[in-house]
Design a protein around this nucleic acid. Sequence first.
DNA 1: CGCACTAGTTATAAAACTAGTGCGGTGCTTTATT
Length: 479
Amino acid sequence: MDIKSILLKKFGFEHFRVGQEEVIRNVISNRDTIAILPTGSGKSLCYQLPAYIKNGAVLIISPLVALMEDQVAIMKKNGEKRVVAINSFLAYKDRQRIMNRLDLYKFIFISPEMLMQNNVAEQIKKLKIAFIVVDEAHCISQWGFDFRPDYLRIGEFLKQLERPNILALTATADNQVLGDIINYLRLETPAVHKHSLDRKNISYSMKQMNSEHEKTAWILERTKKTAGPGIIYVASRKRADELAIYLKEHGISIASYHAGMEQEDRAFIQEQFITGEINWICATTAFGMGIHKNDIRQVIHENMSSTIAGYMQEVGRAGRDGDLSAATLLFTEEDIGKTRFIVQNDLPTETEVRHYFNLIKEGSSKNEATQLSGISETGTRIIDYYLERMPMESALLKIKEQKTEKEKQLQNMLHIINGENCIRKSLLKFYGETLVAAPASCCSVCGLGEEDWLFEMKRGNSTRQIVDWADRLARLLQS
DNA sequence: CGCACTAGTTATAAAACTAGTGCGGTGCTTTATT
């Protein structure tokens, strides 16, 4: 059966969306593939369709338990029964039952951590696997070096299987991230599908402020007078709660969201935001992955991001429907030191690493060594990863490199914030793209701010008309 | 690093100052014990 008829029969679509068909053809022809496709462009079809052509199960490595559960639920709703997620949500008994009959499933969702467990790995090795999917593959770069080293181990593990082909999926990847994906998944001459990251309907602005107070006042004004739905990203959990309460007291429909909350509450708030019961979300970086909401009009950053990659991920959640949207970043001079501290702090110092190493050598347990050396639990997991592979001096060097890399990323962000060049152009340049034509509402450097249409939207005018207006203006300026 | 907060100091007491301390993101997993 050809893929078009499967598309129609299994999924009910007449045509592929942009990018899908090429990716699917690569997967079918047994080639390692990296697909950088925007969220909401139908990434899951890229592995679901080939799954029905090939023999064996599809293993989908996913970063979040909540995300897996969502995807399993959707697939079941669509009539696919042979789908399961292996994670800590499973009751012991269910897990035993499922692990013993893994061969019954066509789609198996799993976290990298679970995959590394011996008993799980043994069961997986027995399976006939059609191909492997690494969903949200940028997590390798973004989280693997920081606190989830099992992301770095995926490639090694897959080598033990009969090297099934790999499909890596993500929405954004600069060359650095792309390199990490290739290296750590050990991809062999992968086909890379990349589309432009230029989002014409997002207008970027960056504003320097003198104090936290000024930021708060600006955000209140903005949320009161301009259109939502929107996300406000803040730097700490405490601030997320406080700002949400403050804005709520001033009549804004808003809730906070961060990793310090119960899973249940997080899911509930996310749901309310998606359905429109809540207009704004005040969140840490915990919010966003796997959120399907097309009409987000604004993303406000109350602080600078520590990396451009992270900023692009967060900002990219705006305007998936194609209508005009605004991305606004506020910052003060003081933010720089604070941001630097947060990203550098979790990496242990040389003294701490040596102390930890000696304790282990002298026979201390891992727990003891962690406690006595004063290194965070996540920190020791990173050290362990290196120490398993190289002598201590090399491990120390790796951690040092990691610190340098973090500083470089922060400098890249600062460069854009303080730069005098068009923000869109600078962001695209970071991803190796050249800006062809700037839209009317480009960015705060280009001087075509977003204010007017944002206030208009609040008054209830259709955004579609406003897009037309912006297009007309763009054409006028070009001619 | 830098901000916010607390405890201690001063010495008519009250408020105001100083020094010290705490706090700061992202998520998977999960044993034996409350």
